[in-house]
Write a protein that binds this DNA or RNA. Structure first.
Length: 423
RNA sequence: GGAGAAAUGGCAGAGUGGUCGAAUGCGGCAGUCUUGAAAACUGUUGAGGGUCACACCUCCGGGGGUUCGAAUCCCUCUUUCUCCGCCA
């Protein structure tokens, strides 16, 4: 969420910038500023009342000490009204804070100046593309056919055990999946990211910290018995490792990577675009997370983009990079680059990574701060990206590496797989 | 799952109703000394709100209560530790 004092200072600039998202927030901003003034006024009233009653309490204490109990008792009576007042003001304050927070929750992050205006994915800006799109013959199959032909993934078994969107990987399919996880983790740790294994269930505070709650409640699986949520991405547990921290600036940047399964309800999804591995309720992903000094965060974002590029280059997959337009930009993000790999047999681009800078938007909710060189405590910038999401990379490999006689394995994966062909 | 103990500042650890935001030690920062460093010594050192700046307010695991006044008493929740049971 945004910080009120930033909104106060940059009111017009913020209203203007949010137009890129297709939003007119001028009224909301006015409401926020009004709610904030109300909050501060109420706080002042409460503080003054408490100050008064603190003074009385001290006096009463001294009077009792010196034996002047009668005077003390007179003072005691005076405090009862103050007590009532402070109780009432406290309730008013709680309400004022809640009103303000609820308003703040509705305002998305301010898009970076590089974010192009636009309403949907068609307006995203292609900033880079690389790799040759193979020309396949007419016999080329989509990955779900290949998975069946070579017995790599069994979607029906998943339906039997759990339901649609929970595939079962078998044999070389399972091995290839595991190879990719190891390969990604190795690439990330080589690049300096520290590997973490984190819980796959998180509590409500964590889900709130990274912004899944309150807005996206319906997207997560909720374990009601223990009031825990299955993680939709490793971003949630990994970023929350640092919730509430006040880090010395010398400790920045903090860089983490982690593999987790991800669980998404994907309510309302249907049709051809969700076939095979294209969209699942459970999938694997290796994530990278950075906590950065605000002065370095955009350099860091560029570094993450380069890092993902290198991986895709090694895998020799044709891909492109999109800079998301205002209409497609995630609620919490200031600038996002999506990576898409070309799915030859489906003749479409599949998103395999999304790399974002959230600036202080997440850190504000997380209360994730650092002590800067000047001694001041400031909110850190958080960034994250997939490196990479497994299913669609797998789909890309199966489709792009298929031949008449089998599927080749990208060279860099052969040591991880222990085989160089699926046939 | 059963029984007991505990939760205090970056860490360790005092504090059981009245100048306690909190002793002390370690750590951190600044200085003295030193060619430099170490050691020693001196000073300083929590967070949030609020203010032009002060003042002032809040915070001793979370929430609630008693009291003029709570780190301190009561209730409740959570977590940790010890013992027992179960277990990959």
């Amino acid at each position: 969420m945004l910080q009120v004092h930033d909104i106060r200072a940059n009111k017009d600039a913020y209203i203007n910038a949010l137009k890129k998202r297709g939003l007119d927030v001028s009224e909301d901003i006015e409401n926020i500023l009004e709610a904030d003034e109300n909050r501060r006024a109420t706080q002042t009233k409460l503080d003054e009342t408490l100050a008064q009653s603190n003074t009385f309490s001290k006096e009463i204490g001294m009077l009792f000490k010196s034996g002047e109990t009668q005077k003390a008792n007179i003072l005691k009576e005076k405090t009862s009204k103050l007590k009532e007042d402070s109780k009432r003001f406290q309730e008013e304050l709680n309400a004022a804070v809640e009103t303000l927070d609820n308003l703040l929750y509705t305002i998305p992050n301010i898009p970076h100046e590089l974010v192009p205006a636009g309403t949907d994915e068609n307006d995203n800006e292609e900033v880079f593309a690389e790799g040759d799109i193979p020309t396949l013959d007419n016999e080329a199959l989509p990955h779900w056919e290949l998975a069946k032909k070579y017995d790599l993934i069994d979607f029906e078994l998943g339906v039997k055990v759990t339901g649609a969107g929970f595939p079962v990987y078998k044999g070389k399919g399972a091995r290839l999946q595991r190879a990719l996880i190891s390969y990604f983790l190795d690439k990330n740790t080589e690049a300096g990211y520290t590997e973490y294994q984190v819980p796959h269930l998180v509590n409500e505070d964590s889900a709130r910290g990274t912004g899944q709650l309150p807005d996206k409640e319906g997207q997560m699986y909720h374990v009601t018995g223990d009031d825990l949520y299955l993680i939709p991405t490793a971003e949630v547990p990994v970023t929350n490792l640092f919730r509430g921290d006040l880090l010395p600036h010398t400790q920045l940047p903090i860089t983490c990577t982690g593999y987790t399964p991800c669980f998404r309800r994907e309510a309302g999804s249907y049709g051809a675009h969700v076939r095979g591995l294209n969209r699942l309720h459970q999938f694997d992903k290796v994530e990278i997370v950075r906590i950065e000094h605000p002065d370095n965060s955009y350099k860091a974002l560029d570094g993450m983009v380069e890092h993902v590029k290198n991986i895709l280059r090694e895998l020799k997959l044709p891909y492109r990079i999109l800079r998301l337009c205002g209409g497609d930009l995630g609620f919490t993000s200031a600038l996002t680059y999506d990576f898409e790999v070309f799915s030859t047999a489906q003749d479409r681009w599949l998103e395999i990574s999304s790399v974002s800078n959230f600036e202080t938007f997440q850190a504000n909710r997380l209360k994730l701060r650092f002590k800067d060189g000047d001694g001041k405590n400031k909110l850190a910038h958080t960034l994250n990206g997939s490196a990479l999401a497994l299913p669609r990379v797998l789909a890309g490999i199966l489709e792009n590496y298929q031949t008449e006689n089998g599927i080749n394995i990208p060279d860099v994966l052969v040591p991880y797989c222990g085989f160089d062909r699926i046939d």
